[in-house]
Structures are given as structure tokens and as C-alpha cells.
Simulated assay, not measured.
Amino acid sequence: MAEKGHKAGLFDLRLIIAVLFGIYGVVLTIVGLGFTTDADLAKADGLNINLWSGLGMLVVAAFFGVWTFTKPLVVPDEVPEAEG
């Protein structure tokens, strides 16, 4: 039996999370690549935290985006009435 309903589309929370992680990831990656000073690196024991955090957020955003499109959320057209 096929499920009747429609896809959540832009209202799927996973897509909203993916977009937010993607935006923050791009910003942190740009800051990590272009605006990190030697003083910033010294505070973090030589690790470019902005760059690695940004790349990690982009990976999470890609995961949520792929998950949203491979397993779309189906919203039923009618809500069944509760018995009892």
C-alpha cells in the first residue's frame, strides 16, 4: 500500500539545519583561510580552529542535505482520528 501524502520540502527541519550549518561553515572556512593570524594560531596551539570547524560544519551540512533528499519526509494528507 502506497503512502498518501506530500513531501515536506522546504519545511523539513533537516534542510533548515543543513542550510544553517552550511552558512556558518562557509563563513568559518573563509575566516580560517584568509583572516587567521599567527597570534590566533598561538592561542590554539598551532591549530587553525576556524578552518577545521568550518570544514566539519560543511561535512555535517552535506550529510543533512543528502539525508533530506534521499529519505524525504512524507506528510499525510489526512490525520487519522484517535480512537478511545
Rank of each mutant, 00 (worst) to 15 (best):
V31Q: 14
T29A: 08
A61M: 09
L28P: 00
I17A: 12
T70L: 13
V26M: 08
V19E: 10
F64H: 06
G46M: 12
L73S: 12
W52C: 02
D40N: 13
T36S: 10
V66N: 05
W52L: 14
L51Y: 03
V74W: 07
L51I: 08
L41C: 09
D40I: 06
I23H: 06
L47F: 15
V59R: 00
G25C: 09
G32Q: 00
L20E: 12
I16L: 14
F35Q: 08
E3P: 10
D12E: 15
I17T: 09
L51T: 02
A18V: 08
I49D: 04
F64Q: 08
L28V: 08
G22S: 12
F69Y: 15
G32H: 00
G32A: 00
F11D: 06
G54D: 05
R14A: 03
V27W: 07
V59E: 02
G9E: 15
F21N: 12
F35G: 08
D40Q: 04
G22M: 04
K4H: 13
T29K: 03
K4Q: 13
G32W: 01
L47R: 12
V75S: 01
I30A: 11
V60A: 13
V60L: 12
G34A: 03
F64R: 03
Y24I: 13
G34S: 02
G5V: 04
Y24F: 15
D38K: 11
K43P: 02
I16A: 12
P72T: 03
E3N: 12
G34K: 04
D38Y: 10
N50H: 09
W67D: 13
S53H: 09
G46Y: 15
T70Q: 08
V59F: 05
I16F: 07
V59G: 05
R14G: 03
I49N: 06
G32V: 04
L15R: 02
L47E: 13
V27L: 09
G25S: 09
T70S: 13
G46T: 14
L58N: 07
G22C: 10
D38F: 10
T36F: 00
